[in-house]
Every structure is written in C-alpha cells, then in structure tokens.
C-alpha cells in the first residue's frame, strides 16, 4: 500500500508526463484515464444508438429509427477541400438527416469500476451542410451530450440517472446560443409483448431547461465551411449522481441548478456508463457534430 506522500508523488509524476505529451496536454484528466479517443486511431468504440425493439424493427420508437452511424471525417468542404481534425486527419462526424428537427446520436458503452468523480473532456465543432452560399449560422439547432448511468446491483440507492446537456444554437431560425439541461424524459413505453423491453425518447424536444447564466457565443467563423474547435469539461460524481462542474472554452458555469433525469433502476443496466453525443438540425438541411478528441477520466 502506497503511503500518502508516495501516492501524491505518483499523481504529480503522472500529471507531469501527461502535460509533456502533446496529445494529452490539452486535457486536464483526473488521475485515471478511462478512455482517450483520438479519431486518427479509428472509431474508438463510438457506434450508432439503435433503439430498442422486440420481434420486429417496426416496434422501435421513431426518434431512434432515424439514427445512423457516425463516420470518420476529414471535414471535407466543397470550396477548399479537407479541413482536417484538431491534431490530425480524422474527426468523428455525426450527421443528421436533412429534415427539420432530425436528430442523430452516437454512443460509447462502458460500465464503471468505482462510484466517484468522473470527468468528460472533449473538443467539438458543428456546421450545417454547406448547400447554400450564405452564413447559415442558425441552421444547426443543437449539439449536446449525455450520460446514461445506473447504480451497481448491490447499491442501496438503485436508480438510472441520465444527465443531459445541450448547446441550443438555434430554434426556429432564432440564433439562441445557450446551454440547457433536462430532468424529465418522455413516458416509458413497453416494447413488444414479452415484458422485457421498454423504451423512452429522452431527446424529445420537450422539457429542456436553461442553465443559469448559460448564454454563450461560440466562434462560428464567417462562412459555412470554416470551423473552429471548442473545449468542454463536464464533471459528474457517480457517488452522489450530481454534476459538479461544467466549462466551455473560457466560461465556467454554475451547476447548482442542474439536475439529471432520474428513474427507477432497470433490470439489465447495472453499473452502466454510457456516454452519447447528439446533433439536431433546425432546417431541412443536414447538421453535423464533429469530435476530436474525447477523454473520460476518473479518480480511482
């Protein structure tokens, strides 16, 4: 067993090594890196969020049926070519269909080892498909992320917890630009007839609430094909199941009013640690969210 001092020395050494690594030094991870997803290495476990079904795909809720696979993208543009990613060739691209309010979701499915502090950091950008020679800054409705969590099977406080955050960029043509969260989901519906599968569409447009002082103007650039990368850090404590911190670029937000979606524990989801990103379009045009890179870390 390491003494307190040697443990502190070890952490300081690990932090120094990470700061000396150009790929990691733009992150501030907690002591244990759970995943570090640099999309020059591939898809890194990011897949399509398929909806639940039983016996027939027809039983899938429509919100999920629209989802498709994320892609590895060089952010290619018709007017100058590949933009490239933050620090290499490829970023993860999540694109909606070209229909107003269409959404897409990509998910990474893990379980947790310890209920304690969890830090999510990622760099992101978003753009509409450049089908028009105009700025189009209000064409992407929102981008966001969520955890889908459930306590361990031996925990006394069994629950499923789903913290949601989104940047509402635009709504019905208005360039809104603010962070929101969600504490309610849609009605849970049984799927099929075996009483084993249910579904609920937690990304329904209802019930988003404004984060306190959550307005933020992000760098969009000056034509629809130029992008800039943004940094997000979201802290969540798996012990208390409460958000403990959120920042985007130079802004640190007050999370005291934040609440996740809470619902009864489900029979097959113990220790679940799913992370998802989503994108939504505000017009009949594809919207895309790009990620490069994503780092999840914990204190254990």
């Amino acid at each position: 067993m390491a003494s307190g001092n040697s443990q502190a020395d070890g952490r300081a050494l690990a932090a120094a090594l990470r700061q000396a690594d150009p790929k990691l030094s733009r992150f501030d991870p907690l002591p244990r890196i759970i995943t570090f997803d640099d999309f020059d290495k591939g898809f890194c476990g990011w897949t399509q969020l398929v909806g639940n079904y039983e016996h027939s795909l027809d039983s899938m809720l429509p919100g999920y049926a629209q989802h498709s696979m994320a892609m590895l993208s060089t952010l290619p543009q018709w007017d100058f070519g590949s933009h490239g990613s933050f620090d290499g060739t490829y970023a993860l691209k999540l694109a909606s269909k070209p229909r107003k309010a269409a959404q897409n979701v990509t998910v990474k499915r893990l379980t947790f080892r310890k209920r304690g502090p969890l830090r999510l950091e990622f760099y992101f950008t978003f753009k509409p498909e450049a089908t028009e020679l105009r700025l189009s800054e209000a064409d992407v409705r929102s981008i966001g992320f969520l955890y889908d969590l459930q306590t361990g099977d031996a925990d006394a406080d069994g629950a499923r917890i789903m913290p949601h955050m989104r940047f509402l960029n635009a709504l019905d043509g208005e360039h809104v630009q603010k962070w929101q969260f969600k504490r309610r989901t849609t009605e849970v519906k049984p799927i099929g007839n075996e009483n084993k599968t249910i579904s609920h569409y937690h990304l329904a447009p209802e019930d988003w609430e404004d984060l306190a002082a959550g307005e933020q103007k992000l760098c969009y650039n000056e034509i629809p094909t130029k992008i800039n990368w943004h940094y997000v850090c979201f802290d969540f404590d798996l012990e208390t199941m409460q958000a403990t911190g959120f920042r985007c670029n130079d802004r640190v937000f007050d999370m005291s009013g934040f609440e996740p979606i809470r619902m009864p524990a489900m029979r097959n989801l113990w220790c679940m640690l799913n992370l998802a990103f989503f994108v939504e379009t505000d017009v009949d045009k594809r919207a895309a969210l790009y990620l490069d890179s994503v780092c999840i870390s914990g204190d254990f």
């Binding site: 898809f43 795909l57 696979m69 590895l72 060089t74 290619p76 590949s82 691209k93 694109a95």
Partner: peptide, 25 residues
Amino acid sequence: QSQAAVIARNETWSGTVATEPHEAG
C-alpha cells in the same frame, strides 16, 4: 481499420431513393 455501418434500417423504398451520404475516405 474496418467498419460495418447500417446505413438504411427498415426503410420502405419506392420511387427514387438514396441512402445518406457516407464519408469513408
């Protein structure tokens, strides 16, 4: 690298149809 991507699931095709653009450079 290798990927299997479902690009159309349970879609009813009639008339002129196309799958979504898939970037795979």
